[in-house]
Simulated assay, not measured.
Amino acid sequence: MEERPLLLLDVDGVLNPLGRQVRGFRRYEVTVGGTVYTVFLHRDHGAKLLRLAEETGAALTWATTWEHLANEWIAPRIGLPSLPVVELAGAEPVADGMSAKTPHVAGFVKGRPFVWFDDALGPEDERYLENHPDVGEFLLIQVDHRHGLTDEHLDRARDWLSRFGPEKDDAIPGQ
């Protein structure tokens, strides 16, 4: 049986719009390693992402520089369970304009189809993924960092993932 597709989630710029508070988002102060960060999160994102995962049979996974801290600081504030994490230790840009996360994502997916919600992906990332031997089908969804994740982004992911068919029996997010 083929493994389930993935829904890869960035935090900053996707779940946490950057630059200003967006209507419907709540402000939180998060302290990490003695540094205080301000994040703006929308409670509805968790329920919408869980519904998308259930409907499509996809596994929600963090692909963020927050790494495991996303499970501690972000997930509970938007109603998500603890999720698997794409490890980014030592992530550095590989080429001009390419995200430092892209090689780590390529190594993590192991041929599984995936949708990646991120605000900092471009043509270099797409080319790298298209040419990587461990990467199968994928859809990069560029999110405007000023507004964050929208229903249109979720609908686009749902439409794309619908061709893989949900596996209702094991459609538990993050598994």
Rank of each mutant, 00 (worst) to 15 (best):
Arg27Met: 12
Phe108Trp: 11
Arg51Cys: 04
Leu60Lys: 09
Leu6Phe: 13
Glu2Gln: 13
Leu121Val: 14
Val85Gln: 11
Phe108Tyr: 15
Arg27Ala: 11
Val85Trp: 11
Ala63Glu: 10
Ala95Trp: 02
Leu154Ala: 03
Leu154Gly: 02
Leu52Glu: 09
Glu54Asp: 12
Pro93Lys: 12
Gly79Asn: 04
Glu152Pro: 00
Arg156Ser: 14
Gly165Leu: 15
Ile141Val: 15
Asp155Ser: 14
Asp10Lys: 01
Ala106Lys: 09
His132Ser: 07
Asn16Asp: 14
Val105Glu: 04
Phe108Pro: 01
Trp66Cys: 00
Asp125Pro: 04
Pro133Tyr: 02
Leu139Val: 01
Leu129Asn: 00
Val94Tyr: 11
Arg27Val: 09
Thr35Ala: 08
Asp134Phe: 04
Ala70Thr: 03
Gly90Asp: 13
Glu72Tyr: 08
Tyr128Ala: 00
Asp170His: 13
Ala120Lys: 14
Ala47Met: 09
Ala63Arg: 03
Arg23Glu: 15
Lys110Ile: 01
Thr31Lys: 13
Ile172Met: 07
Gly33Cys: 05
Asp170Glu: 15
Gly90Ala: 08
His68Gln: 13
Phe25Gln: 01
Leu52Ala: 05
Leu129Ile: 00
Glu137Gly: 07
Val105Thr: 08
Leu129Ala: 00
Gln175Ser: 13
Val36Trp: 04
Ser99Cys: 03
Ala89Lys: 15
Asp170Ala: 12
Arg158Thr: 07
Val109Met: 05
Glu67His: 05
Arg77Cys: 02
Gly90Cys: 10
His68Ala: 13
Thr56Gln: 10
Phe138Lys: 01
Gly46Ser: 06
Asn16Glu: 03
Lys168Tyr: 07
Pro17Ile: 09
Leu161Tyr: 05
